[in-house]
Computed example of a mutant assay.
Amino acid sequence: MKKKIGITGQKGFVGSHLYNTLGLYPDQYERIGFHRDYFENPEKLDDFVKQCDVIVHLAAMNRHESQEFIYETNVNLAQKLADSVERTGSKAHVLFSSSSQEERDNLYGKSKKEGREILGRAAAKNGGIFTGLIISNVFGPFGKPGYNSFIATFCHKLTHGEQPVIDMDGEVKLIYVGDLVEEIMTKIRQGKTEQEFVVPFRTSAKVSEVLEKLENYKNLYFENGEIPVLETAFDYQLFNTFRSYFDIKQHYPVKFTQHKDPRGAFVEVIRLGIGGQCSFSTTVPGITRGNHFHTRKIERFAVIKGKALIQLRKIGTDEVLDFYLDGNEPSYVDMPVWYTHNIKNIGEEDLYTIFWINEPYNPQDADTYFETV
Rank of each mutant, 00 (worst) to 15 (best):
T288P: 00
R263I: 09
I270E: 03
R289S: 02
F280D: 07
H251Y: 13
G290I: 06
H251N: 07
K307G: 01
Q237W: 03
A265S: 15
F242K: 10
D261M: 05
F246K: 12
K260F: 09
E299P: 07
I270R: 07
T295W: 10
F256W: 00
V284Q: 11
N240K: 07
G275Y: 12
Q250V: 02
I287L: 15
F239Q: 04
V254G: 09
G306H: 04
G273D: 02
V303H: 01
V269R: 01
I304P: 03
A265P: 00
G290W: 08
I270A: 07
L312W: 09
I310M: 12
V284S: 14
I287G: 00
G273Y: 04
K307N: 11
K249W: 00
L309D: 14
F301V: 09
D261V: 04
T257C: 02
K297W: 00
S279C: 07
K249S: 13
K297N: 15
L309P: 01
G275Q: 09
I310Q: 11
K255S: 12
G264P: 03
K249A: 14
G273C: 05
H292E: 14
K307A: 01
P253G: 06
G264N: 09
K297D: 15
V269M: 11
T295F: 05
R300G: 06
I287C: 02
R300K: 14
I274M: 04
P253W: 10
Q258I: 01
K255T: 10
E268H: 08
I310D: 00
I248F: 12
H292D: 11
S281W: 04
F256L: 14
F246R: 15
G273R: 08
R300L: 15
